[in-house]
Simulated scan of single mutants.
Amino acid sequence: MTDFVRSLAARQLADYRSGNPGTFFAEPRRPQLSLDEAYRVQDEVAALRASTERVVGYKVGCTGPGTRAQFGLDGPIRGLLYETELHTSGSELSYQAYDGLAIEGELAVRLSDDGRIAQVFPVIELHNYVFRGELPTLQELVANNGINVGVVLPLTAAELPWRGDEPLIGCLSVQINGICVDQGPMGGVPGGPVGSLRWLARHLNDYGLHLRPGQLILTGTPLGLIRVRPGDHVQVTAEDFGAVEATIAA
């Protein structure tokens, strides 16, 4: 690992904790960052956080038509999920704790002891919706951990009512204050949840990492990111798989 990656990771973490993420990417004459270096930064940030914050899984992002159109980027990319940033359905989230808070409705899975999908359920993914470069890049997205800042999980998740080799049918929808603002097919990312897992397993192997039993995996979404405001009530529903909700406080 280069000194550049180490120093940038320390800066990234300091910026993140100060509520001003990714200032490096606002510098007009910044050094060029490769995609591999961006992943190394992401992993080095995890190493710096490891003494107090445990990685509990991964996200696969920038694969569905919604986010690809919004960002003007084609993934997939991965990010890390931290135990300290998991919330339960019904939580009240502080708007001021984030920078440009946006949410995303998507399907997540929990892995069984043999590495298969044990559970599938809807989640609300939380984002600092900030790009500081002149144009969004995969390097900025990855170095900022896929702009993930947390996940809202359902209180309970039923044992798998779906075989992973079967196509997913049904609708994934997002409601804000009781109004549906986005919806799409649950299987609307390339290959569905299984396709995301297969890509993630191959990608992690390239970085000496592996999927582990019990990990939480966000498999991507066909929908887009939705900015929210204080007072908003958010609900994400996956047909036949349940719902999850949260309220945005000032």
Rank of each mutant, 00 (worst) to 15 (best):
L48G: 14
D182I: 11
Q235Y: 00
G75P: 04
G195L: 06
R49K: 12
A9R: 01
L101H: 01
A46W: 05
S173E: 00
Q175M: 09
R227C: 14
P21R: 06
L138I: 12
P193H: 13
L35D: 12
E44P: 05
L200T: 04
I248H: 02
Y129L: 15
H127W: 08
S196P: 01
N205H: 13
G66Q: 02
C180S: 14
T52N: 10
L197T: 04
E53M: 10
N205S: 13
R54Q: 09
A102L: 00
F24D: 05
N177P: 12
L155C: 08
G191M: 15
L73N: 01
E53P: 04
A46N: 07
F25C: 06
Q42R: 08
R6F: 07
G115S: 07
G105A: 13
V152N: 00
P154Y: 12
H203R: 13
Y207V: 02
P167L: 10
A46Q: 05
G242P: 00
R229H: 14
F4V: 10
D182Q: 15
L35G: 03
C62K: 04
S173M: 01
P76A: 11
Q32L: 11
I176G: 09
S196N: 06
Y39F: 07
L211I: 09
V244L: 06
E83G: 02
A118F: 00
A10H: 08
L141V: 10
M186N: 06
A246E: 09
T247K: 14
D3Q: 14
S18E: 10
Y207N: 03
E245D: 13
W162N: 03
H203Q: 15
I147L: 15
I226G: 00
Q139Y: 03
S7Q: 14
D15V: 06
G146D: 02
V120C: 05
T52S: 15
Y95K: 07
Q215E: 09
P76Q: 05
H87K: 10
V228H: 03
A97N: 13
R11I: 08
L197M: 14
G187A: 04
D74F: 10
G214S: 09
N144A: 11
L218Q: 12
V189W: 07
H233M: 00
P222Q: 02
V5Q: 02
A157T: 10
V109R: 00
L126Y: 05
C62F: 09
S94Q: 11
A243S: 15
M186S: 00
A157W: 06
L111S: 02
G115Q: 03
A38C: 11
G57A: 07
L111E: 02
G184F: 00
I103C: 01
A201Y: 05
G66E: 04
P28G: 06
G195P: 01
E85T: 11
V151C: 02
D15N: 08
L172D: 01
A97Q: 14
L13G: 03
G150T: 05
G231C: 13
P213W: 02
